[in-house]
């Protein structure tokens, strides 16, 4: 199993690397296109501001490489959002794998959403063994709108897509690497896809 975590400078990737290490898999951190292409599984992380992260992807040409990948790719948090068509954060055009847009939560709820919330209507092998309404840890100010690629839903002032899937591309808004034992199961499921 060759697992690569795309390392393009956006966010805390140590936690993801450690989470896989706890599952017995040594992930490689890389921004090298050849190494990424050769991987069996790919994690596309991201924490921070969308337009800055997108610029970093462009600088390394990874924005062009990612849509060509054929192996399972898991976008986490901002990684998932950048796989969408567009995000309101910094008015940023995304990579466009998922046919949906990312918007800011309105101020009728506290922003960012920070803490544990439930994921529902689970529809993917990614969630094998995960019960409906399981708690996951989320930290975000922007959310993906529903589309027919929604594979998990969460309520926070409104109902939004907390996970998406298009062919070999998966995206989760929550942090499985920080979501206790159940989060680790999702990472394990991804490895077994």
């Amino acid at each position: 199993m060759k697992l690569v975590i795309i390392n393009y400078g956006a966010g805390n990737i140590k936690s993801i690397q450690f989470a896989f290490k706890r599952l017995g898999v040594d992930a490689i951190l890389s921004n090298n296109p050849d190494e990424i292409k050769e991987a069996d599984k790919i994690i596309f992380p991201g924490v921070g501001e969308a337009s800055t992260a997108m610029n970093m992807l462009k600088e390394s040409g990874l924005d062009k490489l990612i849509p060509t990948l054929k192996q399972p790719v898991l976008g986490i948090c901002l990684g998932m959002q950048l796989l969408c068509k567009h995000t309101e954060e910094g008015d940023t055009k995304g990579i466009g794998i998922f046919q949906t847009n990312v918007k800011r939560f309105t101020n009728k709820v506290k922003v960012p959403q920070m803490g544990w919330n439930v994921i529902k209507d689970l529809k993917s092998d990614l969630f094998k063994g995960i019960k409906e309404s399981e708690y996951m840890y989320l930290v975000h100010s922007y959310y993906a709108e529903h589309c027919n690629e929604t594979i998990a839903k969460t309520d926070y002032g409104l109902n939004y897509a907390s996970a998406l899937q298009h062919e070999n591309f998966y995206g989760v808004q929550f942090h499985p690497e920080k979501s206790g034992v159940e989060g680790a199961k999702i990472l394990k499921n991804f490895l077994e896809l």
């Binding site: 706890r22 942090h175 989060g183």
Partner: peptide, 8 residues
């Protein structure tokens, strides 16, 4: 802690 703990 980051290596071994799975909550934030």
């Amino acid at each position: 802690v980051a290596e071994q703990v799975n909550i934030p």
